[in-house]
């Protein structure tokens, strides 16, 4: 983090911010046509998308395995909302598939907790 107020300061990469306003890539849309949340998993189907924008192509490349929306957003370096719009485009043309994953959210699920513990012990 560069906190100095040096006149010669050069901003590079992340410090310089984005070159393109994020909503340009979503054509100004802020509402995805498919309901996705941060942890929704998406995966490419292998079918070609209708659009060939770099962001769409990049998103496809990121999702050869089931990948969370949050992760795609971070890799694309776009806000989650914009990412959702892009992913929804790809879902609409069947270039991607999504599934509401099995969410384990019961903190009293003993079997799950034991599996988690076992997994964390092997790390």
């Amino acid at each position: 983090m560069n906190m100095t107020a040096d006149d010669d300061e050069v901003w590079l990469d992340e410090q310089a911010g984005r070159l393109i306003r994020p909503y340009t890539v979503s054509s100004g849309r802020t509402r995805p046509s498919v309901d996705l949340d941060l942890l929704s998993l998406v995966m490419t189907t292998g079918r070609s998308p209708k659009t060939s924008d770099p962001e769409h192509a990049q998103a496809l490349g990121l999702c050869r395995r089931p990948t969370s929306v949050a992760e795609v957003a971070a890799h694309l370096r776009l806000p989650v909302v914009v990412t959702k719009v892009i992913l929804a485009d790809l879902l609409d043309c069947d270039a991607m598939t999504t599934k509401t994953p099995r969410r384990a959210s019961d903190p009293k699920d003993r079997v799950l907790l034991e599996k988690l513990l076992d997994g964390l012990q092997r790390l």
Binding site: L39, L41, M43, P66, S68, K99, P101, R102, R103, A104, S105, L112, L116
Partner: peptide, 8 residues
Amino acid sequence: EEFPTQVK
């Protein structure tokens, strides 16, 4: 098999 169980 394709989509694992998610926990947060």
